[in-house]
Design a binder for these strands. Structure first.
Lengths: 400, 400
DNA sequence: AATAGTTTGTCGGTACACACAACAAACTTA
DNA sequence: TAAGTTTGTTGTGTGTACCGACAAACTATT
């Protein structure tokens, strides 16, 4: 039961077209989720009348959201006409900025990528601005610019509503105004979001079936730091100024192997991130008086899985702390599912073993068990998240 | 942007009366929040047309939700007719079960108590069931039973939707089926909720203006244990099986002064609850070779405020851990406001001092500041929460 | 091959609810 | 007393969903 926010009432009152807005979104989501599907089937599943569904489907075909794909099989009567989301046509531009690479891609309504450009991320904010602007302008033009919106995932603090990027810790960029520039240059709406929240959004709209059938789950993104995304009632929890879900800075002890990005040595992220993992491995190697310059996280995980002693120990200890933190969040938020994303999930067995250790705590506390699973989104969840930012606007519930 | 849950679509489609349902709730909430208020003023603030508001107000007066209270002052034209919530008439029965006492009260739509009965809580579950049933039946009868619903706050795990009480740790009651019994006996809907969540709900609907103007805040209930309630987007976050917000069992160290209710010595609640406070005080007294049997929490807080050394030290240390935990939640959830409830809030200055110490952490992490405040609900927030359970159904947004 | 039954999709009628505009009532100010 | 303002009501038009009837398309049975 939700309290009505009177300060926003002017956007909330129901007008004559509100009925249609709501039902159109519901029908659109049925086509997205259950395609191929017929008008009659949608009517049965929604309890809308066949004639109503028919009018809405005509409208959706008319505006290019969905398309006919021939007849289905008869069940003893007239064959139904089937529909699915219109695919192959540009619907979204996704910008995914990570500390190493930046990807700009064109996607259709179904989330398929039609074009993709990757380039190295530079610490030079001016250079990055011009690079992004130029490539986005190019893609906008070649897409025909018809209702194509833009989604932008950034590893930092953003205000989604104002479209402002406050701080990108990795490069110490502050108050980066790129979104307004893109909007001015292309005329398209830009939606910006923190990378962890974008990943949570990606899981919500494109994740594993178990996740998509849930509307309350957590996403733990293990990378350079640790990001957490909270999805509650089908919405990404943002908190004030989009800073919600920064559990990476939760206190986990007082002698972490590395400094946190915030300077502290107490944060969870300083115990359980890739940075902590690498530091532990280097310390073990140094203790063994064998020096080996730099190691990649993927290689380290590979080594550990092949039984290399130091790598295995470093990974094990790091996952111990990761599991402790996850356990805290499970106890505190009691989600139906926890999704872990990042390169360390290749060693999933190890994480599961560490989780089993702490899982009993929630059982002791009498709480229901939580499903823990690795992300099924592959190597670029934040890019998919950037697409999700646009599609969530297209498919999400009307403001009401 | 919220994802539409297709599994519940049959309840979500908009019908013809959906417009009216939505707008009726909005108008009702305006009368609740801004009374005395006229039809014309509601129309101005909502952007609904005067004629529409007029029809809805007639409807609300007709069903006894609001009532006329004479004319307002003219601003150069005809005097407006003012309305307010109908008060003085029974609208909700609140049941508030705490480890020591159980309160059953009759309240009106505005949340005023019309009648109140208090009796000692007994560990005998059968006795409690019959006591509650009998008194509720009596109140139902004398209220005329016209649309009066029942709210029930319990210190334990509940499933709000099924109306089941899984576990009350303090008495180790399990699977208590009292809600169904009450419903069967009275014919009135019973809404049951965990005490921390009920308190959060109370803050949401009856709290300080700063809280009511927010739709994202945390409630920390310090009592025998520590309960946390999370309000996000005007809704209480429940998590799976209503277990959301049990951050009391978050790991805060490994040598707490007492065992947690779950058996662990690592939980936050074992560091920062009233139980921990009392244990620390007793330990200090024993160390001083002065024995003093049992102390009440209220007395201990009083002593500490008057400068008694041991009490002050025990309270200070406990508040240190309380502040640490709150800080974790602030960093993780970035709420606009944190409300602290419980007897220790009488020593608010001390809590604030401890909070100031950890507050810098969120500033370092670049996060926006959070307002911390004591509850303004007085001595029985859970009773008000129990009323809130009913009123949230009456005033909340329609399911849609 | 004809007929009966089923399913799909369409069309016109009805009901509901909001917006709008015109108007009457009630009040203030000059 | 007259002009201006605000409130609240009433009648009309429009958007949208539901309903029932019907045609089209198909399957199954005789």
């Amino acid at each position: 039961m939700k309290r009505i926010n009177l300060h926003r009432a002017k956007n909330q009152i129901a007008r004559l077209n509100t009925i249609r807005d709501i039902n159109r979104q519901i029908v659109l989501n049925y086509v997205r989720d259950r395609s191929p599907i017929s008008r009659a089937e949608i009517a049965r599943q929604t309890d809308l009348h066949r004639s109503t569904v028919s009018v809405i489907v005509d409208e959706l075909v008319g505006d290019g959201s969905i398309e006919e794909i021939g007849s289905g099989v008869s069940t003893g009567g007239r064959k139904p006409t089937m529909y699915k989301l219109r695919s192959g046509e540009p619907a979204a531009i996704a910008i995914d900025l990570t500390p190493r690479t930046t990807t700009i891609a064109l996607a259709d309504l179904a989330g398929n990528f039609l074009e993709k450009e990757v380039f190295s991320t530079s610490p030079d904010i001016e250079f990055m601005s011009s690079q992004i602007l130029e490539r986005v302008k190019k893609l906008t033009k070649c897409s025909g610019n018809e209702g194509v919106e833009i989604g932008f995932s950034v590893p930092g603090l953003v205000d989604q509503r104002l479209g402002e990027i406050y701080h990108v810790p990795y490069f110490d960029w502050r108050n980066w105004n790129i979104c307004a520039e893109i909007e001015a240059a292309t005329g398209s709406k830009v939606t910006v979001e923190n990378d962890a929240n974008a990943t949570a959004l990606a899981e919500l709209w494109f994740g594993h079936e178990k996740v998509r059938k849930t509307d309350t789950f957590l996403m733990i993104l293990v990378g350079e730091g640790i990001g957490t995304g909270i999805v509650f009632d089908g919405q990404v929890y943002r908190g004030e100024k989009g800073a919600g879900g920064e559990f990476g800075h939760m206190i986990a002890g007082d002698n972490a192997p590395v400094d946190c990005s915030c300077g502290s040595r107490e944060c969870w992220e300083a115990y359980a991130s890739e940075k902590a993992l690498l530091a532990r491995y280097r310390a073990l190697l140094a203790g063994d008086s064998m020096k080996q310059g730099s190691v990649e996280v993927s290689d380290l995980v590979e080594l550990a899985m092949n039984g290399e002693k130091h790598a295995a120990e470093a990974l094990n200890e790091t996952m111990h702390y990761l599991a402790n933190g996850i356990s805290n969040l499970i106890v505190g938020l009691s989600p139906q599912v926890v999704v872990v994303s990042g390169r360390v999930t290749r060693a999933w067995d190890l994480i599961e073993a560490q989780m089993a250790r702490v899982a009993e705590r929630s059982v002791l506390a009498g709480l229901p068990p939580t499903i823990l699973m690795p992300s099924s989104l592959g190597d670029s969840p934040t890019l998919i998240g950037a697409v999700g930012l646009v599609l969530a606007r297209k498919f999400g519930a009307p403001a009401f």
